[in-house]
């Protein structure tokens, strides 16, 4: 059983791809600014993360000049 299959389901979606496009940034550039690996940012961008450290969230919001609510949305229940 893979890690994703065993994860508890959630409806949090990350809008990192939208924010990157709006700011004309690449994932690698953001990784350099934030101090998080590209792999971890990719996990976050593709909604495979299960938790985010407050330190990572702070660094992302600083780098992207946004608020946590701009980064994440909760999809409506089906």
């Amino acid at each position: 059983m893979s890690g994703d299959e065993s994860a508890e389901p959630h409806r949090v979606r990350c809008r990192l791809d939208v924010l990157l496009e709006e700011r004309s940034l690449t994932l690698t550039e953001l990784a350099d600014r934030v101090g998080v690996t590209v792999v971890n940012l990719s996990v976050l961008k593709n909604d495979r993360a299960r938790a985010v450290r407050f330190s990572t969230l702070t660094a992302l919001c600083d780098a992207l000049q946004c608020q946590p609510g701009d980064l994440f949305v909760v999809e409506p229940a089906p």
Binding site: N40, L41, A49, R50, A51, V52
Partner: peptide
């Protein structure tokens, strides 16, 4: 370990 694996 499973919890930490999904932590960013």
């Amino acid at each position: 370990r499973e919890d930490v694996e999904g932590l960013v």
